[in-house]
Amino acid sequence: MSAPAARSASTARGGDTGGGAVRGGGAGTAAALAVEGLVVGYAGAPVVDGLTLEVAPGSVVALLGANGAGKTTVLRTLSGLLTPRGGRVLLDGDDLAAVRVEDRVRRGLVQVPEGRSVVTELTVEENLQLGALWRSAGRAARRTAVDEMYDLFEPLARRRASAGHQLSGGERQMLALARALISRPRVLLLDEPSLGLAPRVVAQLFAVLRERADATGLTVLLAEQNVTSALSIADRGVVLALGEVVADAGAADLAADPALRHAYLGF
């Protein structure tokens, strides 16, 4: 990875000996991503109502909740696809209200949408090229960036000439993740990446996320219904119900709290 990425890794994780304070904490560290009093939805019944959330640099935060809890709405608002009725979204302290989707991407805030968002008409190679396009201007730079992703996700290298619609579910999700990582985002938003995938594939993908967070200081907000897998790599878990935060705790605490699990996560 590049020098800036390595530098941010050292600031995020430097001297950390495994304590949750740096990775999961909001207090003291400037949040990579902050949400203040976010309200989204049509008049009458907001889907997200007054959400406040901070994600520390280099941490993995799991955004949990049942279907309809508002997870997707939150992510789509953060990436700019939806315009909030109220509240603010801050990236490294900058208000993003006037920043369009395409420019949020250029600032390092990248969303991997749900439903394995591979452009099915394009090949694996073309999907990756597309992801690398704004970041890597020259043909050679794009080649390097794409090859890095083939190294990281070997199954993709074998299928580089296949069209998106020929890929398996796992390969598609792998491609969607690679295509997002290729632009070296600082904050990655993922919407249900585990949906419909075999547990082994989920474990692989999540391991890559954890590794990127640790090694490069990537900040991850991971919306998931697969609570166990998500909490296994997360520093912190935030539970949404009807558009509001009902729990916000360290991942281990959250996983160990039977009442909470039963009430909001259904297991």
């Binding site: 991407v105 597309l130 992801g131």
Partner: peptide, 24 residues
């Protein structure tokens, strides 16, 4: 061409393309 790649992607998947930084 890279312009063509963006034109094709924006045509079939505008939202995903925006999320990849394509000025749709």
């Amino acid at each position: 061409s890279t312009l063509g790649l963006q034109l094709r992607a924006a045509a079939v998947a505008p939202e995903v393309s925006r999320l990849l930084g394509v000025r749709v």
